[in-house]
């Protein structure tokens, strides 16, 4: 990943994360197939909802005939971390037009957010509409196509986990968090390590008493507050 912020650089920078999308996208397609969702519904979920982990939850709730209101609330809770990420990312695009902000905002994901945060460490805190759009669009298309391919192949591959592809997403986040750790000079290494440890502890204790998605949110917010206090003490 270099400092260039062109569209082409965006396409190049997003490529390593594509494996994560393909692995999880195929998995989602296969799950959707076994849950008897048609290709049209899979396409609708991937291209209109476009919400990774929420899609798995929606699928299982559809299968259980849960009420629409419950499905909407679950989707909101699972995706509420997006509010934090979008608020963070939006600061880099305040000078752009409202339309461009909305275009970027509608396609932000965990992965393209994390990638953008890595990128701005290399560009003195700058991001561009072209770069971010390239990353967003490639991610969007790869995700949608991977889920459709998964749904089609669903009947053929019975055990995709054998090949380890389900680990791609975890590996990607490990890579992104490591690169963030070593390149964020603003916060520094020791402060970030303390915050990471704190987040892991909070998450560890919270998943016993609340849902995983809620624990993720609590750990994130608690980690930010902890970080602010630690920064004051330095």
């Amino acid at each position: 990943m270099g400092p260039s912020l062109t569209f082409r650089a965006g396409v190049h920078d997003v490529l390593p994360t594509v494996f994560g999308y393909i692995g999880v996208g195929l998995a989602f397609g296969i799950v959707a197939h076994t849950s008897h969702l048609s290709l049209l519904v899979v396409a609708g979920l991937s291209f209109i909802v476009y919400a990774g982990s929420a899609q798995f939850i929606i699928t299982s709730m559809l299968l259980l005939h849960d009420p629409l209101s419950a499905i909407f609330i679950s989707t909101f809770l699972v995706n509420s971390r997006m509010i934090l990420m979008s608020t963070s990312l939006a600061q880099y695009f305040r000078h752009e037009s409202l339309t461009r902000n909305l275009l970027i905002g509608s396609l932000v994901t965990d992965e393209t957010f994390a990638l953008a945060m890595n990128k701005q460490n290399k560009t003195n805190g700058k991001l561009s509409f072209a770069w971010q759009s390239a990353a967003n669009i490639v991610a969007y298309l790869v995700w949608g196509i991977a889920t459709l391919v998964g749904a089609v192949l669903g009947g053929l591959i019975s055990n995709p986990e054998r090949f380890g592809f389900d680990f791609a997403l975890t590996a990607m986040f490990i890579g992104l968090v490591y690169l963030q750790l070593i390149s964020d000079r603003h916060l520094g290494l020791s402060l970030q390590l303390m915050v990471m440890l704190f987040v892991a502890l909070v998450y560890y204790f919270m998943i016993g008493i609340m849902s995983q998605n809620f624990a993720l949110l609590v750990a994130t917010v608690a980690g930010c507050l902890f970080g602010m206090e630690m920064k004051k003490c330095r």
Binding site: T87, L176, Q180, L181, L187, A215, G223, C224, M228
Partner: peptide, 19 residues
Amino acid sequence: FLSFVPITIMTALCCQSLF
């Protein structure tokens, strides 16, 4: 507050797969 979001959210996402 938001300057800590990247490291905290990525750590929490990793924890989701490790625990």
